[in-house]
Every structure is written in structure tokens, then in C-alpha cells.
């Protein structure tokens, strides 16, 4: 990793890893490399903000949370362990949980109540440019989601994109909590298998 002293995406990196992966950028960031941070931000911020805003709706609040996420990345990059999962997953896990924490403790919770039913996952791509790797991931997820039953997709969307707890979902859908849990679990297992995720 020591060869990676530049954030230029040159082809001559001698690292065993692919040139300037998110993982490599985190490694550089952990040593205080602001250029690496800048590059990571440029390449992931639309994703982070997109996920956070999907949960929070309110743009200003979402930017606040996104800023918290990126400061957290800056602070804790040294703790990222690449053998435990991808950098993108690490970043998105952090983003989602911060967004959920915010939505459950703020006005954002009321805002999101007004858009129950908006559960499409079809993004509009025109507004952002992003890396090929993310776009490919997106296509995979979209295809996998299509394999779920409507009820599973609904429950998962409410939980993940709505930030609702299972008991809230039970209330929204007027079904028992146990049914919600089952739908979430069955749906996630199906998704996992469709996506080929191995723990």
C-alpha cells in the first residue's frame, strides 16, 4: 500500500490491489491524505447523499447527515478493514444508520410520513455522473429486487428506504409484527441469494 502515495489514477501503481479502489483511498485517507478524501468524496457523495435523502427526504437535513458521514469516514478510515467487506458497503452502512437515527429523532420523521407509497427504486441517472462500478452494482440490485414478491418488496422498501421499524411497518400495513419480520427476512434472504452475497 505504501506505493500509493498519489491519488492520481495513473496506470503505474504498483499496489497489489486495483488502481485506486475505494479501499486504497481509505488507506490513504487514514494517513491524512486530503486529496484522497477529495477523490473518495467525488466518487461516492452522490450515492451517500442519495441514500440519506431517500430516507430523510429533506435536502438540507440530508446534506447535514452526509457531512457527518464523510467526517466520520475521515476520522475512522484507519478502522476500516478491507477483508471484512467492501469500502462501499462500509460507507453505505454508516450512511443508512445515521440517516435512520436522524429520521427517528427529528422532524424528518413527519416529512417521510407524507410519502408512504413512493417506493419506486427506479433512479434517474441524468443528473449525476458516477463510476461504472457503482452503476453495475445498481443494475444488479434492481434485477434482484424484481425477483421479490410485491409484499416483500413493499416491506423491505418501507424498512430500508422509509427508515421504519418493523412495528411501524406493522401499523402502516395493518398486519402483525411477526408477519412483517417474516416478510423482511424471507425477502432479504431472496435478495441475498439473487445478489450472490456470501457472508
Amino acid at each position: 500500500m505504501l506505493e500509493l502515495v498519489t491519488t492520481d489514477r495513473g496506470p503505474d501503481t504498483e499496489s497489489a490491489e486495483a488502481a485506486v479502489t475505494f479501499e486504497s483511498l481509505l488507506e490513504l485517507i487514514s494517513r491524512g491524505d486530503q486529496e484522497a478524501f477529495s477523490e473518495l468524496y467525488d466518487r461516492t457523495a452522490p450515492r451517500v447523499l442519495g441514500l440519506v435523502k431517500r430516507v430523510l427526504v429533506d435536502h438540507a437535513q440530508s446534506e447535514e447527515v452526509a457531512q457527518e458521514v464523510f467526517l466520520e469516514i475521515w476520522k475512522t478510515a484507519s478502522k476500516f478493514e478491507s477483508h471484512r467487506g467492501s469500502a462501499m458497503s462500509w460507507i453505505l452502512t454508516m450512511s443508512h444508520r445515521r440517516a435512520v437515527d436522524r429520521v427517528r429523532s427529528s422532524q424528518a420523521g413527519h416529512d417521510r410520513d407524507e410519502r408512504i407509497g413512493l417506493r419506486d427504486i427506479e433512479p434517474e441517472y441524468d443528473q449525476v455522473s458516477e463510476s461504472v462500478e457503482i452503476r453495475i452494482e445498481h443494475e444488479r440490485v434492481k434485477r434482484a429486487m424484481a425477483q421479490l414478491t410485491e409484499l416483500q418488496r413493499e416491506a423491505i422498501s418501507l424498512a430500508y428506504y422509509g427508515g421504519y421499524s418493523h412495528s411501524e411497518i406493522a401499523g402502516i400495513l395493518s398486519i402483525p409484527v411477526g408477519t412483517v419480520k417474516t416478510r423482511l427476512r424471507d425477502g432479504m434472504i431472496r435478495l441475498r441469494d439473487e445478489l450472490g452475497v456470501h457472508s
Binding site: 477529495s38 468524496y41 467525488d42 457523495a45 452522490p46 450515492r47 447523499l49 442519495g50 441514500l51 435523502k53 431517500r54 435536502h59 440530508s62 446534506e63 452526509a66 457531512q67 464523510f70 467526517l71 467487506g85 462501499m88 458497503s89 453505505l92 452502512t93 450512511s95 443508512h96 427504486i121 433512479p123 434517474e124 441517472y125 443528473q127 449525476v128 458516477e130 457503482i134 452494482e137 445498481h138 444488479r140 440490485v141 434492481k142 434482484a144 429486487m145 423491505i156 430500508y160 428506504y161 427476512r185 432479504m188 434472504i189 435478495l191 441475498r192 445478489l195 452475497v197 456470501h198 457472508s199
Partner: peptide, 26 residues
């Protein structure tokens, strides 16, 4: 496995371009 799967759902959210101020502030 399911936690890993859940994070992939994040990639299905519509990307949103941040304000330039956000990066400047950061």
C-alpha cells in the same frame, strides 16, 4: 449476509448531487 445485502440496497437509491458548499465545508 443480510447486512451485506442491505447495504447493496443503498446502491439502488437515486443518486443525488450534493451542493458544492457541502464539499467546501467538509
Amino acid at each position: 449476509g443480510l447486512v451485506e445485502t442491505a447495504t447493496l440496497l443503498g446502491l439502488a437509491a437515486t443518486p443525488v448531487t450534493p451542493s458544492t458548499r457541502l464539499k467546501a465545508d467538509l
